[in-house]
Design a protein around this nucleic acid. Structure first.
Lengths: 252, 252
DNA sequence: CGAATGCTTGATATGGTTCAAATCCCGTGG
DNA sequence: CCACGGGATTTGAACCATATCAAGCATTCG
């Protein structure tokens, strides 16, 4: 475990601490988890369906996607994970992959073993709860994706996705109006349940209407308000601030 | 807490025990959770978006759905919960509802307070893990729904849903070929991201082709193999048997 | 028996797909 | 520094799966 590893674990802790209240001791326990650094090439499966894993993977830099597949081989991205996310924290309790995880671009990761995570969780109930809560935020995002893909038209879907990524990429719940999004239009299509051709056309109208400019793997949101309204985006579901609850509980 | 309440808690325990290994003591702790029985009328919101809840709801009989909404008011069902499910176990760690939960028919429930659940989880790490795991199975189902709605055509979507419910309604992973499914075609449409009109037509062809007969709130699967193949259904994602892992861990 | 809700069917419209080809972009090696 | 190659983007034209609108029918329930 190198110095940079623990610096990177800070990413994980920050993420957890934004959603759960952890004591000094608990925080230290997270920061001293043993890790193993690694790198995943673009379009490389990190976890295959049915494969059993014994570690999780914190994204330090880059982006990963969770993929589902139909029998004919068309793909559907069910989640996009950015730096700071543990892409498969869920694997601690379900080690057999039920969907593939793939790097969307060259991605550096930090592996953390299930055993170690389980140990911390067993020792500190608040940490167990924090892990669980983190997974539930992912689930809330997933649930939004169902709505997005099931009930919104192309323009709305893409607008929603762009807004979501803007908020998730920024680190303080403020949307980052210009952010790197190193995915192809085909990836966007797989994420929104559309065709890459149609994504391309829709992106063009978004650009022509002065809402967002997506090019060269960078998203530039030109008019946040209009884009968020078009995309029916309300960031509430991304939040899980429970500090008030935690404090109230301490008083009882 | 009545006798029948503890009989009903057995439902919850069964569900947990099918996916996690729990000691005698842990099982007792679950069974002695205090509960409050209740009933929810069809089409009645049980949880509204943004509402804060302080208890979970075990479905004893009936069915509930999780709903998302677009700004124009069209709805998308993101999850259907059947008897034995705790429809909102996730609310223990995220008490503020991020989507509405509504009874799809008259439904009897058992309320279990968050505080009590949290107490058991804190006392028994294995229980905490079991709760977490249960939520992750729900998330896997959700993730399948994204694929379903995003990448499959109407016939396949509906076939998949019918298969999923057949397995989830049966209690031993064996699909129940005839099962009650007390929802309207409009509900089906909201679940699959289609129109009720199109659901109706698709149901008809499914019937004409001798695969499944859906009428009067009862699903009759006439040819499981063909329906499962058409629906690209593989029940793996619904399983989370971790007994082997748990045993291996005990040996170390 | 009437009212409401859900189901069924037909006719027409449309958003998104499909297929195919041209162009752009960028990294690589000569 | 330029030419080359391969993925990614862009555009056009035809087509189709599903939506939309509208009406009639069936069931259930008070």
């Amino acid at each position: 475990m190198s110095v940079s590893a623990s610096a990177n674990l800070q990413l994980f802790l920050d993420r957890l601490a934004a959603r759960s209240v952890l004591s000094e001791e608990e925080q230290q326990a997270i920061l001293s988890l043993p890790t193993r650094a690694g790198q995943v090439e673009a379009n490389h499966d990190f976890v295959r369906i049915g494969e059993r894993v014994d570690h999780c993977c914190l994204i330090v830099d880059g982006m990963m996607g969770r993929f589902g597949q139909t029998f004919e081989g068309t793909r559907q991205i069910t989640a996009i994970h950015v730096a700071g996310d543990v892409a498969d924290l869920h694997s601690v309790v379900r080690p057999v992959g039920t969907s593939a995880i793939q790097a969307l671009c060259t991605t550096t990761v930090l592996r953390i073993s299930h055993d170690e995570l389980r140990k911390v969780a067993a020792r500190f109930p608040a940490v167990a709860e924090a892990f669980w809560r983190d997974c539930m935020v992912d689930a809330a995002v997933l649930s939004q994706w169902v709505v997005n893909v099931g009930r919104r038209d192309a323009k709305t879907r893409i607008a929603h996705l762009l807004c979501e990524m803007a908020v998730r990429t920024g680190d303080d719940r403020t949307p980052l109006l210009t952010y790197p999004f190193p995915v192809t239009q085909a990836h966007l299509a797989d994420a929104t349940g559309l065709t890459s051709v149609h994504v391309n056309r829709t992106l063009r109208t978004l650009r022509e209407e002065g809402m967002a400019h997506v090019r060269a793997r960078v998203v530039q949101i030109l008019d946040w308000n209009r884009l968020a309204e078009l995309g029916e985006f309300d960031a509430d579901y991304l939040n899980a601030d429970t500090s008030r609850d935690a404090r109230r509980r301490l008083l009882n």
